[in-house]
Design a protein around this nucleic acid. Structure first.
Lengths: 360, 360
DNA sequence: CTGAAAGCGCTTACAG
DNA sequence: CTGAAAGCGCTTACAG
């Protein structure tokens, strides 16, 4: 056991100097190269390389010989060598441009990350995760990207004032963003949920359920989720709805939900429903309602957004709008792939789904 | 705007063939190489390389000249070329060995991921995220690791029967695991929370609060969190505690918590406290308690584990045990780094913290 | 302290 | 269809 507990294994042996080879070589186990395969198959390395790649212009005989030799020797291509000549990294950076650590507590985020990783994996490409929350992290990311270590970038959680987008665009690396960009970075293609439509469907549902004083807690208005979901609310309630029924949360946290609900209750004690722009905010709102002696859903109906694990941890469980983050991730990768292939990038909007549970 | 919308930019230009250079070269913008820097500084590439690396045996004059030339030309090292010769990738794989997608909904997971990424970033190394939930994904991971594309691996959520650990050990790549490994993979160093101590502190707290019939919902017993937290419970309650007070959840989900609590209530209707092995399980348990007409914490006190966002979404908010996932991530990277440097790896256990809120 | 040179493992026009 | 050869951008003993 635990061979890895010895110093000898801790570090990969450096490449031996050409002139100092000999006895040491045996111990190296460097793995077969394309030359070994060529020798084994009785062809040139050029031919091996050809079957490795597109593989046109290779005779069936040569191909099978090479394939057998590769299997036999356990050959695996050295990506560094390949990248050095092709300048394609076969990897994509997933850049999290979020100063707060909060994002990482957002289950949506990890679902997105997973689906991107998986979709990339199916194309045999890798995801390198990078943080860009501080200036120094940002410059590291930029250096990394500019050095060509990735073929493209997936952008997440970029804010209006984020300088990274512009810098990235300047360096002309293919990029796609999760969710519509506000402000700068307008040129970056995006894929996102139908925030506005989803919000509309929820508010519409509340209205059909007979609610008449429907308030809303919007998300922060410097995020697409904040503004688009509010717009969806207004689509149904009408532009002319009382201002007192609308409040924006300071951020996406539970505490912000409590704070917003408190304000709402003061401004409009007679509300009978709230559409809240995220599940976590909604959980905060529900806590305040309970403390205020309002029963959910009898006195006040509550609708959330996300369908995160939190939606199922509240009591009663949240009626909410599911956004298919897995689909979003898949499409982000596809759009990026399209850009690699020279296609004109498109923006994609994926539909949401109303999930009815106990709060409305 | 949107220069990235043209086909020309979508794909990086291939390296020009040496013989076909000329006019095309101007358009390439390949970025300066070590040769350009050398020329600019009036030294040889060997010298440039030396200041790039350890930088011993370089005269102050040469060094400053090179540094200025690098700044001036905007030089950035080509990692592929470097890796090709040094065989060090400057990257680490974060391998998620979890067949279920559920893990990605676990906030703990993303916090861990973030802290690993950050710690790595501070060492100017990269994290590549890999999924290993299916057989094909696993073989991709193995190929990748064996090809030397990473210097080491960070293992997460490996189960007893997981074949990956053994395969990884066989290929002798430095590895560290998050949490104690059960069964195979015993040789892999790990870093984890003090699950047992944390559980003990919670149960002890419940006991001091005057609870006398303290039950527990353990996590799945094929996970370290499942068994160690149960052991902590037993440390306080005693080995001889009634069997009816102990139930293990099928998995870590809300539903499993409901199911377990239901069984517990049937077996021991007179319980006055439950220590639950995770916050999400606890949320499920609380829902069942409420439906059964038991008030929390008056009739039944509830203690969770994790201090995840869910802990703050329940009503009342959960009294729980915080595990410092950020610290765990940091230490995972440090231990791995130690292995790289030839140190004997150690296991590290980080302390937990009791967080008292409303349920107990 | 430093330059010249070999080599890391691949890809790709070129000339059969 | 295939081999020989150049080159990708770096590092590192070697011999000053």
């Amino acid at each position: 056991m635990a061979e890895n507990r010895t110093a000898a294994v801790g570090q990969r042996a450096p490449a031996p100097h050409p002139k100092s080879r000999g006895a040491a070589r045996r111990a190296m186990r460097k793995g077969p190269t394309i030359d070994d395969v060529a020798k084994l198959a009785g062809v040139s390395r050029g031919t091996v390389s050809r079957v490795l790649n597109g593989a046109r212009y290779v005779s069936p005989a040569a191909r099978t010989a090479v394939e057998r030799a590769m299997k036999e020797s356990g050959y695996v291509v050295n990506q560094s060598a390949r990248t050095l000549v092709t300048r394609r990294a076969n990897a994509v950076a997933f850049i999290v441009s979020e100063p707060q650590e909060r994002l990482f507590e957002d289950p949506n985020f990890s679902v997105l990350l997973r689906s991107c990783t998986q979709e990339l994996g199916e194309r045999d490409a890798n995801l390198v995760l990078m943080l860009a929350g501080t200036a120094s992290a940002r410059s590291r990311v930029l250096r990394f990207v500019r050095a060509g270590h990735v073929d493209g970038v997936l952008l997440v959680s970029t804010h209006s004032g984020d300088p990274l987008i512009a810098q990235l665009q300047e360096s002309r690396v293919p990029a796609v963003s999760c969710g519509r960009s506000l402000g700068t970075g307008v040129g970056v293609p995006y894929v996102g949920a139908d925030d506005r439509g989803g919000a509309r469907s929820m508010v519409d549902y509340l209205r059909r359920a007979g609610r008449r004083r429907i308030a809303t807690i919007a998300g922060p208005l410097d995020t697409p989720g904040g503004v688009d979901r509010l717009d969806g609310y207004r689509d149904v309630v009408g532009e002319d709805s009382p201002r007192r029924l609308v409040v924006a949360a300071a951020d996406w946290s539970h505490a912000a939900g409590e704070e917003a609900m408190t304000r709402l209750l003061e401004a409009s004690p007679d509300l009978d429903a709230v559409f809240v722009a995220s599940d976590l905010l909604a959980a905060g709102a529900m806590a305040v309602l309970r403390r205020a002696g309002r029963t959910v859903p009898d006195d006040v109906a509550v609708g959330g957004f996300d369908d995160s694990p939190v939606a199922v941890a509240t009591d009663p469980q949240l009626t909410t709008v599911r956004q298919p983050l897995d689909l979003i991730g898949t499409h982000m990768v596809r759009v990026l792939q399209g850009v690699f292939e020279g296609q004109t990038p498109v923006n994609v909007i994926v539909p949401t789904e109303l999930v009815v549970r106990g709060t409305a």
